[in-house]
């Protein structure tokens, strides 16, 4: 099993160069049954990562390019009259897929965004009164451009909360970029990468995450971190209990990736900025991003002995 995780990481790192940490977090997110939000400028490799993830995990993949005129039905699907059968036949939308890449999610209108986000939360969609289950595993990778760019509808906080982890890839290291430029674009290799794991073992791995032990002392540490965000004067409001649950879930998956059957404070510290970065809203005066603030909280709270 652990060998499988190592293989997955290795294969991903061969496609997305020099982003070991982010790749690891993406794997953690998938193992923790969470949804992933990748936020970065265009052309930084967001789609490549999403593509590579679905290929390497051997999952069925659909891509939705969000635009301002995209409608909910374009995502969920619609019923069309079939002349031969003399009835309406449901044509499922791109959301009926194990991995959905929602590209540039913040360019769509809030109405369309919420259609996707509802599906993410419920793992089912209701179309024309009929409830249809989504496949399992179901994993949404959304990418978004920084919200200060033109033509964007920033996701509201309530919807950001649905994503377990938010990543930002950032510019590659010059060395890495050099090799990238020398070897040409790797997108081709992302689409042709072979699966490193099948669906059944993947579901078992997700099961294993649930069995990772979280000791009382560690829960105390997580609580202290959460309480610190609630007391901080640099934040508009603190973390919700759902955020606390997300931290536990992500830390468990991280422990599994690190080949441990119990969570240690380092796991929490590693996932904390990625899990809470998009849930923390700095006050007006603060120049820091949510991620920086999360790092500051980790620096401030003592690990219980």
């Amino acid at each position: 099993m652990t060998q499988a995780i190592a293989n997955i990481k290795h294969a991903l790192n061969a496609i997305v160069l020099g982003k070991e940490q982010q790749v690891e977090m993406a794997v953690v997110c998938l193992l923790a049954k969470g949804h992933l939000l990748i936020e970065d400028l265009p052309g930084m490799g967001k789609t490549t990562l999403a593509h590579a993830l679905s290929r390497v995990f051997g999952l069925e993949f659909q891509r939705i390019q969000f635009t301002s005129d995209l409608l909910p039905a374009d995502i969920t699907g619609t019923s069309i009259y079939d002349r031969h059968q003399q009835s309406f036949v449901f044509h499922s939308g791109p959301i009926f897929s194990q991995v959905v890449l929602a590209d540039e999610i913040n360019r769509a209108t809030p109405k369309t965004q919420s259609a996707l986000l509802e599906a993410m939360e419920e793992q089912q969609v209701t179309i024309e009164g009929e409830t249809r289950a989504l496949p399992s595993p179901f994993f949404v990778i959304a990418t978004q451009n920084p919200s200060h760019q033109l033509g964007t509808y920033p996701l509201p906080e309530s919807q950001l909360d649905r994503f377990l982890i938010r990543l930002s890839l950032g510019y590659p290291h010059p060395e890495v970029e050099k090799s990238l430029l020398l070897n040409g674009e790797k997108r081709a290799s992302a689409t042709s990468a072979k699966a490193e794991i099948e669906t059944q073992p993947l579901l078992e791995l997700q099961q294993q995450v649930e069995q990772i032990n979280v000791s009382e002392s560690l829960v105390g540490y997580i609580l202290n971190l959460v309480l610190e965000t609630r007391q901080s004067s640099e934040l508009v409001h603190g973390l919700s209990p759902r955020a606390g649950l997300a931290i536990v879930q992500a830390a468990k998956a991280y422990a599994l990736v690190r080949e441990r059957d119990y969570v240690i404070p380092e796991d929490v510290q590693a996932v904390f900025p990625y899990v809470v970065g998009h849930r923390l809203v700095p006050t007006g005066q603060s120049q820091m991003t949510g991620m920086d603030l999360a790092e500051a909280v980790v620096q401030k709270v003592a690990v219980p002995l």
């Binding site: 240690i264 404070p265 380092e266 510290q269 980790v298 620096q299 401030k300 709270v301 003592a302 690990v303 002995l305």
Partner: peptide, 22 residues
């Protein structure tokens, strides 16, 4: 564990409060 840390402190190795044990 605190006793262990105290013994290490005598060897001038100090644990930061926010540092995980690993």
């Amino acid at each position: 564990y605190r006793l262990f840390l105290r013994k290490l402190r005598r060897r001038d190795i100090h644990k930061r409060d926010n540092e995980g044990p690993d």
